[in-house]
Design a protein around this nucleic acid. Structure first.
Lengths: 205, 205, 205, 205
DNA sequence: GTTTAAGCGAGACGGTACGTCTTGTCTTGGC
DNA sequence: GCCAAGACAAGACGTACCGTCTCGCTTAAAC
């Protein structure tokens, strides 16, 4: 975050090296993976003195948090190609394609999130933001009559639709299955049609 | 365990220290997390010389692989309490309870799986084994008429049922939701009833 | 003190902080010894910004020189209790008592004098001043008939009388010997009586 | 000390680098003075990894102690040219000549001795050893009738004879005076002849 | 009476050295 | 031959200082 209110970092001044460092952190993560990330490497690549990195990001964890947070700031929007089914499929395809290069930034960020409590929280923020952005897909579908008029738990639907993808790619580390994005989307839509994500009054108590 | 599949270790002689070391690796992982694991720490706790660890497990990755593999060798069986829905719920509850303490062994193993290609493969083996064991749940349900007689893709059903749990706990690092195990199980069963996991001929083309 | 001899400082304006800083330098030296002296510590204690210290004293060496020079400006006079023997003994006693606490300012100043050529010169100035002040002791003795009427090299006599003290305390770092001040004084007086410090014509050739 | 009993250092193995490192410490001290000594510089010059230096000498202080101690192990003997007066003069001349190069090892060792308690003790040991070796000069003189037959405090005599030299060179940092060695020796001998260093019974109580 | 320069607080910045901690290899010597 | 012991090379880590610099604010003197 270039955001000066950022409570994560300690001082992060206006110096032009901030962006430069961030780029190099991402590069190192993508090239060498989380464990290959070193303050030394980043500093050298960014042509900044190692001490500077410590001053501004405190330690290796700070770099990670910064990059994870920065990942949430790109102006991404979920696909909007029409129907819910298609949108979820497209979403899944995006997920599937992103970490196709090994080691990828996406996987490295996952690994990084295990580094410390703070990186874990950053990762949690990132996911929360991502799901918040995706909820519009579900809301659109409800509005267009694609779903039961009763209130649907968008977050659960989205998780049902996308979790299998993340599961396969990140946890199982299986090779991508080209049919999985569509299948998982359809499964979620079927379940939704069957009322699986309907919010009952008494449950919300 | 002198696991015959284990291509990692160079020799693993009869010394009684093998089990001792494994126990300590697990203890260190559970206590200090993946990043806190050091050969020194393990060796000291196991009262073995550090060189011994390198001789037998080659390097830190070897220790991790060994422990991940060992995790797949315990004689675990999925719950069998009756109906598919109940079984899946029970399964999810087990998942939810395991990593409740932070840092836990389960989470540490996840983190460890990002260490290298080899630990990733060990983790993949572990998941494969786990799903294989769980497939019996689905097969029983099909056999008992709980599901459509047409062939059901057990693996997909299981992933649909459990992925949301792993997603919440491991990736989102959210606080456990006591209702989630049941909900995710029900969602998967609803989807299954709607034919989401039915294998069609044309799909295999 | 805006010492006119001081070639060190670039400017030393009227701000009241000059004295404050000097006091803190002395305090730091006495408390933490020469190696423990930092511009940061001094600045903080003196409630002055670190940059101010650099502006006015140029660098750490400047602080040291300043303090060494300031040590020569206190209005000290050698003891005058009567006879040469007694005066020298009293002088030695003063020497012996000053650095009795370790680490002391006196020892820290000695250490500081090794810092650079410039601090060494400041230290030399300090000694020169000290001996100049002490020469009165010898001159009085000559005048009062306590010594041979021929001209006596006061400086040599003083060094002979006090060097053993400094040697023991500063170089040998031995524990103070309560009898040493008197003994060293007597030795010097005996040598003086034997003509050891008499200046002969032929020697000046 | 190559002495394996050495309680100063922590392990100091048989590796051939020990001597190499010591040589480089001395070289650095002589070239750059005490403050210019860095573990980094020494390690690089000795072609040893920096970590090795820390392993074997613990820290910068360890290096200093080692070198100070080593300085006491060279097989030096005081001059023996005949009479006490001449011997003391020769001794003083040796002192005067040693630190003639600035910065010299001798001065650097002095500065180093202020580094810590431990280096100070090493320096004290060095002086004690040096005086012990020099006492033979006085004993010879007493034996040959050069001095009063009553017992003479050799150490005090030696200090009286040499302290002015050290004082001038190390503390006052004055330029060497070519006549000083002889003068200081004569002064001490005169004082001795006058009974300045005679040990009285009651004093030794 | 402004304005303008110095004094000074604040802190970013580049840089050196420190001492610690791991990792993984290799050698030596006892059983 | 197993293995305890530990030396060794390598390199990252995070900290503490150092000394330089550029901003701005304020305040006293110059115009």
């Amino acid at each position: 975050m270039t955001n000066p209110l950022d409570t994560t970092s300690d001082h992060r001044p206006g110096g032009g090296y901030t962006a430069r460092v961030r780029v190099q952190v991402r590069a190192e993560l993508a090239e060498r993976g989380y464990e290959g990330l070193t303050t030394e490497g980043v500093a050298t690549r960014a042509e900044v003195h190692r001490a500077m990195v410590y001053r501004c990001w405190r330690d290796a964890g700070g770099l990670l948090i910064d990059v994870i947070d920065a990942a949430g700031e790109i102006d991404w929007q979920p696909p909007n190609t029409g129907l819910l089914r298609g949108n979820l499929t497209a979403l899944n395809q995006e997920i599937q394609e992103s970490p196709v290069v090994r080691p990828s930034l996406a996987v490295a960020l996952m690994a990084a999130s295990f580094h410390s409590e703070r990186t874990a929280r950053a990762q949690t923020r990132l996911w929360a933001d991502w799901y918040a952005r995706c909820e519009i897909l579900v809301e659109r579908a409800v509005g267009c009559g694609g779903l039961d008029a009763r209130h649907t738990d968008a977050r659960s639907l989205l998780i049902a639709a996308t979790a299998p993808l993340h599961h396969q790619l990140v946890l199982l580390r299986a090779d991508p299955d080209p049919r999985l994005p569509k299948r998982a989307a359809e499964t979620a839509v079927l379940a939704a049609a069957a009322g699986a994500f309907t919010v009952h009054r008494e449950e919300s108590v």
